[in-house]
Nucleic acid binder design. Structure first.
Lengths: 169, 169
DNA sequence: GTCTATATGGTGATAGAC
DNA sequence: GTCTATCACCATATAGAC
């Protein structure tokens, strides 16, 4: 693995654990490179955040594309927000937003595009734009709460609750 | 109005506008006091965040108590998350969490208590704990998105979508 | 490409006069 | 209670050797 990838991966892990992206020095140390080494690959903090977000968006695109094949976009979306194993990606993405000051204009734009893309996938499945928006927002709320550490209802019960509102019937 | 209140109010406004609580110096200047004056009232950044959150929690408790009287807790909850006029309180509360490092243990605990309290009020109204959790989380997601600035569906259509899932029938 | 060393600015926090 | 002055620290970022 290249150092760049290693840095990205380490930064993401730290961001998920701490709820925010730590200082570049801390990221560099944890990645096994020097501060200068890190800043060769990412010339600013904003660039690092951008990298984290881009990686997360790409991975989520893949996961949701696979879900479209399987026909379980809604479940996958909630799982990406909720599951202890799968929620890391989306959480990393949201964390890169809460980093005050260093959110790029380009990052905001690309994330907004991704959000629309994902909401459209959900809408294609459930056949109702309002339902799709609500499901997407529900996922955001779940991620938000996983940061603060509150308890959440099990995924199955949420899916059960959604059912009467997500059929095309 | 006391200086303490003025500082708190200004800090909340800045936090809402910027998506994060700015430096104590900036808050002091905007409040019309010196940095030392601010730190007489709030002896640390954590104390200021704590003050902002406490103020927001108290105001939301009042708003939801009034909603219980009127019997529209769900609508009020979503309005507190969504409405351009009313969403400031909750947004200020969530912003004080995303402040890395300086979130007190006491703040986390009191906020978790408030969250449970509010979710219980929703559950009392809709008669289903899963629905209540989903509605509360939906609100969190909405606030999260208002920070990033994405477009949201109108409140009425969300309430309409919720209807078949929130009756006691 | 990666490192060490350093510049520079801003931040939270303290001390003490008024 | 409020101010000025100052502190020590840590952050991002740069320069230049290897």
């Amino acid at each position: 693995m290249s150092n760049r990838e290693r840095i990205l991966q380490t930064a993401r892990r730290l961001a998920i654990e701490a709820g925010s992206v730590p200082s570049l020095g801390a990221v560099a140390t944890a990645s096994g490179v020097s501060k200068g080494g890190l800043m060769h690959h990412f010339r600013s903090r904003a660039a690092l955040l951008d990298g984290i977000a881009a990686q997360a968006i790409e991975a989520m695109d893949e996961a949701l594309a696979a879900a479209v094949e399987r026909g379980n976009v809604t479940e996958t979306w909630l799982r990406l927000s909720m599951s202890r194993e799968d929620a890391d990606l989306y959480r990393a993405l949201l964390v890169s937003f809460t980093d005050s000051g260093s959110t790029t204009e380009a990052l905001l734009r690309r994330s907004a595009e991704a959000t629309q893309r994902w909401e459209r996938l959900i809408a294609d499945e459930v056949g109702d734009p309002v339902a799709a928006a609500a499901i997407r927002l529900l996922g955001d709320g779940i991620v938000m709460n996983s940061v603060t550490g509150d308890r959440l209802p099990p995924l199955e019960s949420v899916l059960e609750w959604l059912k009467p509102r997500t059929g095309r019937n």
